[in-house]
Every structure is written in C-alpha cells, then in structure tokens.
C-alpha cells in the first residue's frame, strides 16, 4: 500500500544554514507519527516543507504517490486541501473579524462545494463533529475560549476533507483540563475518518500518548 506521506532525503536550507539534513519517514492513513526535538532541531522546517509552505532544497515529499516538490503552485492547489495544517495559536490562525461559520465555510466555497442548504448544513455538522454547539458558529474567535477556538480551527481544517493533518503544537497553548479534551477529539477523528497525523510538539507526554511511532530530531537529522 502506498503510504499517505512519504518523505525522502529531505533537505531544507536557510542561507548557509541547514535546518533539515536528509530526513526520511512515512505516515500511513490512520496512523500518527510524532516528531519531537528541541527548538531549532528542524521539526517545524520539516512540517513547512511537507505543507509546501517552502520549497525544500533537495529530497522528495510524496503525498499519496504524488511528488509535491516538483509541482507548480497551480497544480499544488488541487492537492493542498488533502493535507491541512493545525497550528498552535488558535486565535492567530483564525481571522479575528469573521464569524466562525464563515471561516469554516470558506474552504467549501473555494473548492466549489458550497450550495444551499447543503453548505450551512455541512458547517453545522463540522462544528458538531469537533464538539462545538453549532450556535457558536455565529461568534467571532475572541468570543470563544482557547479550547473552543482550537476546535473551530480543526473544524476548518476538516472542511477541506483532508487525509493528512499536520499538527504543529496543537495543544501547547491550552490549559491542561482543555488539552485532554482536544487530544481525545483528535483520537476520535482519526478513528472516524482514517486521518493520518504528523504530530509535531515538544510536549513529550502528548506526543507519546497520541503517536504510533515517535521520531526524534536533532540538528536537522532524525536520530531515533
């Protein structure tokens, strides 16, 4: 079976500095791979290259057999919805001035999957799926708690019908009693939708708990 994500010999450089130095790993559907290591070890640069937020210097990023590094931005557009990021700062990753429901609807509109009444129904369904009362869709991000806001961010990522989520410190900004709820949600969504997760964090306990395999990076290389 083709792995969902197949990273081979990835190299990311910033000027003369090598942030990622020949990294290879795979993520299968329904599997969580944890990526840990100290600040500056290259884990976030790896995530950025996987999401094609930046073009790697060398190596391959295959998503469902498709080589992403070679794709033009126009061709990438068709693939992007299938791999979605979830970031640490739930408030920062949502627009402060637009209602939650409009932000969750956006991927549906952009991908031409918006219609009435199916569109609004899908938004309500996504909110429900992440454990939010659909009435919260009427709110602005600052009117939600940190935990609710992170759930809304996950709902927006799910609106694209992704197969892989790149989770970059998704629970680090949350209070302990809310963190457990979001971790449980991620486990439920994976069971239900068969999502693959690349989970990047320095919260070792959370990574160990969520992951099938944990890779440790140091100075740009995977060391275990």
């Amino acid at each position: 079976m083709t792995p969902l994500l197949d990273v081979r010999d990835l190299v990311v450089r910033y000027g003369a500095a090598t942030a990622v130095d020949g990294v290879s790993f795979q993520v299968r559907a329904g599997e969580t791979v944890g990526l840990v290591g100290p600040s500056g070890c290259g884990k976030s640069s790896t995530a950025a290259a996987v999401l094609r937020l930046r073009r790697p210097h060398a190596g391959e990023v295959r998503f469902d057999g498709l080589e992403l590094t070679a794709l033009s931005e126009r061709r990438l557009r068709a693939v992007r919805p299938r791999l979605q990021p979830v970031f640490q700062d739930p408030y920062g990753s949502l627009s402060p001035r637009r209602r939650i429901r409009a932000q969750i609807a956006e991927p549906l509109r952009v991908q031409g999957r918006w219609s009435r009444p199916a569109g609004p129904e899908r938004v309500a369904e996504l909110l429900d799926m992440v454990g939010l009362d659909p009435v919260l869709g009427e709110r602005l991000p600052h009117e939600l708690s940190g935990g609710q806001c992170q759930r809304a961010g996950i709902a927006r990522a799910l609106a694209s019908a992704p197969e892989l989520l790149v989770l970059d410190e998704p629970v680090s900004a949350l209070d302990p009693s809310l963190r457990a709820g979001v971790l449980n949600l991620l486990l439920d969504l994976q069971d239900r939708l068969g999502l693959g997760y690349l989970f990047i964090s320095h919260d070792m306990a959370a990574v160990r708990h969520l992951s099938d395999r944990v890779l440790t990076m140091r100075a740009g290389k995977i060391v275990t």
Binding site: T32, L183, H209, L210
Partner: peptide, 24 residues
C-alpha cells in the same frame, strides 16, 4: 481531575483521557 487528565499517566497510548467536564 487535572492530574488524571494529563497524557503522561501510565496508560496505553491512544486511549481516551479522562476529561474534567465543563469549563471554569
């Protein structure tokens, strides 16, 4: 409740964590 909800406890990976219901 707070301590029980931590993922660091001795429990098998990928099991659901006990959550303190509600919010402050």
């Amino acid at each position: 409740g707070l301590l029980a909800s931590l993922p660091s406890g001795p429990r098998p990976p990928k099991t659901r964590l006990p959550v303190v219901p509600g919010r402050p």
